[in-house]
Write a protein that binds this DNA or RNA. Structure first.
Lengths: 194, 194
DNA sequence: GTTTTTGTTGATTGACGAGTCAATAAACTT
DNA sequence: AAGTTTATTGACTCGTCAATCAACAAAAAC
């Protein structure tokens, strides 16, 4: 009993299921069947829509990047002035949606994927570039020349905080993460101000 | 023509080969045969000595941790005073041996392993704990109460710098990494000093 | 009302890989 | 010299899984 126009629905369900399963299993060793089952369809259908497992992974990455991008843009729209914009970027990076265990686990595994799959590497570089330019936009008015090294450090710090979240046992502690990042930022800005 | 006392030699060769192969392939999807071949023996022998692939991975992790620990201890032995000790820890973390692409790639994959294998998680926590206490020892005399958050931030920053190294294309840039970490440290210490 | 397009799956193929085993051989023990 | 322990491997088992295919169903187009 096929309804028409299923393609986007099925694809969306698969993307979501891919992220959930990678997070649940904790590695890229998830089978297409697992993903398809969670998305409520047969593995054959998953292949029908995506062609290969790798394409599913890449679609999942794109989806996470899109979500993250939207969140940053939303937060940025409300912010006034460089300092507030920086805070917005950090808040979005550690938002409840992005900092869920499941998303963080998937994120880590995408990093692994980037070692093998060029397109995955490219996507991750897009993310890095966006983060960097967002940070720079806020930092340049406050720190001038010293903006670039600060942005690079802060970017690495954010990634590191994600990484460490993976090892934690309890629930994600967004507060702690965001405080650490803000702390970094503040000591940098104090040093740079007249 | 079996010579006796091969066990430690074979095991060492396998551990080394495991790290190399994980770094080369860029994931934990390395076959025991690949590892064994690189170590110059049959896959059956690898199983004979380690029992399972997972045990090989864990042995490789222990090895990397041991190397890192030795390097830190060595650097620390030469250092005088808290500031110099902090610098020593950072230098060891980004030493040529630890910051090779191959080692960094393996490191990333061990993080993934820690999501599934409890013993791997434990080992990674040992690493984190050691790093943390080394940093704290240097920081407490300089920053007092504020030592703990600084150490946590610096630890995350170091992990983040490792993570970012994975995406880089060229040769590892230890200088840049160590400068970023020192920078973080300096702005923190300035803020804390009378 | 027949043809085409879109949706869907069970069954199958083909490859690959972890772990086991039996067999062989050299060295040590008694 | 017979027996035991250690080293070593080729061949095999058994399971898993990505990807394909043939077949079926319903809507749309003609």
């Amino acid at each position: 009993m096929p309804k028409l126009g299923m393609e986007p629905i099925r694809k969306a369900a698969l993307v979501k299921a891919t992220i959930v399963e990678i997070g649940r299993v904790g590695s890229l060793d998830v089978t297409v069947s697992q993903i398809a089952k969670r998305a409520g369809m047969s593995s054959a259908l998953a292949h029908h829509y995506f062609g290969s497992k790798e394409e599913m992974f890449l679609a999942a990455m794109r989806h996470i990047l899109t979500l993250y991008g939207a969140e940053v843009r939303g937060a940025l729209a409300l912010a006034e002035g460089p300092e507030s914009r920086l805070r917005a970027v950090l808040a979005a990076s550690f938002s409840a949606a992005n900092f869920r265990r499941e998303a963080v686990g998937a994120w880590l595994n995408f990093w692994v994927l980037a070692q093998t799959v060029p397109e995955a590497k490219r996507l991750l570089k897009v993310y890095q570039g966006r983060l960097r330019s967002n940070l720079l936009a806020g930092l340049r008015p406050l720190a001038g020349d010293r903006a670039e090294p600060i942005a690079d450090g802060l970017g690495a710090l954010i990634d590191g905080l994600y990484l460490r979240e993976v090892l934690k046992s309890g629930p994600p502690d967004r507060e702690a993460a965001i405080t650490t990042a803000l702390n970094y930022l503040n000591s940098k800005l104090e040093g740079a101000r007249p």
